[in-house]
Nucleic acid binder design. Structure first.
Lengths: 182, 182
DNA sequence: CTCATATGAGACATCATTGCCTCATGATTC
DNA sequence: GAATCATGAGGCAATGATGTCTCATATGAG
């Protein structure tokens, strides 16, 4: 019988995101300690450091895609989809962060998925531009970078408990739409 | 006679910024290779990995402070000082980036200097707020984070050769002042 | 030219991390 | 209660990074 026990594995993944975010050179012992599991247990779930990294990247991608898909399925415009995406992504910004931190080490298919997500963001921005949302001064690339940058800034505010996730998202959206909007 | 030969040391520092920015776990061999110097030479200038990191942080801080001071010495308002700071910092964003990437590993006095720089940015924003520059909706902390985030975004555009430094700075300033301005 | 200095290449020992292993323990299922 | 499974602790060897060393060479000053 195949049994799935998530707690240990999930704890390691969460601890790894947390640890590597602030200390990229942390050892697996550090991660295991943060996760509250033995080092052996970590190795049972993840054969090697690279395997853990690969899993982290994949989990980050999946969680982000799921959040975005869930946030946009009921949107009635591309602008609204972007706004709801912003709200959905902010709590997961450390995932986004991890993905962008060592793109060099990513496998080919993950790099491809990463590029695909970026293309989808640019696509949504292009459509929102047609809806008249954005200033013609701002290139789509710039708008996408600003979007990501504001997500990161908003996440920082939430992490430091200066704002609630909802407050941060509202502020970020206002800043975004005033900043690059028409 | 004390002789100062900067080329090797400077090459290592520059290579280290470049390498660690995209690959935080890179080895000193990688850094030396990127710098075009032997590993022994790297160790002659920097006794240990930690010493190199410490030097990088210190250099980053000094370069940023010098750039900001130079950019703001002739400013006639706090708003203008912020705008000129933005222009000055963008080419050095990888330095800023390095400083924020592993704050945990910084020595106490560097942490203090880092906090001091942040406080100065917040101070300038407060004064610019009195000049009527900013929306009252945005907290000073948020404005400061947006400022840093836009610097990073602009630097990315320059790095990827999508925009010139001047174009990127102008776009970032427009986005900034529209985004959090009054 | 002569000397001093900086350098590159490489050898070397040391250390930390990694990956694998076993064994005893605790939890869960039947 | 018995059996099965995941786990924690710890030992162990292999690997890779690090830090130190020597020596030959190149560069630059006097």
């Amino acid at each position: 019988m195949i049994r799935v026990k998530l707690s240990s594995r999930a704890a390691v993944i969460e601890a790894a995101f947390l640890t590597f975010a602030t200390h990229p050179t942390a050892t697996l012992t550090d991660v295991a300690k943060t996760a509250g599991v033995g080092r052996a247990t970590l190795h049972r779930h993840f054969a090697s450091r690279d395997a853990l990294m690969e899993t982290l990247a994949r989990v980050a991608m999946e969680e982000l895609n799921a959040a975005v898909e869930d946030a946009t399925k009921n949107a009635t415009s591309y602008g609204q989809a972007l706004e709801q995406t912003l709200h959905a992504i902010i709590p997961l910004a450390n995932r986004q962060w991890f993905l962008s931190s060592d793109t060099a080490a990513m496998s080919d298919d993950l790099t491809e998925l990463y590029a695909k997500d970026r293309a989808e963001l640019c696509d949504a921005i292009e459509h929102a531009r047609i809806e008249g949302l954005f200033s013609s001064d701002a290139t789509t690339d710039w708008i996408a970078d600003v979007f990501d940058a504001l997500v990161y800034a908003a996440w920082g505010q939430v992490r430091d408990e200066k704002l609630t996730p909802k407050q941060a998202a509202n502020l970020a959206w206002t800043t975004f739409i005033n900043g690059v909007g028409k």
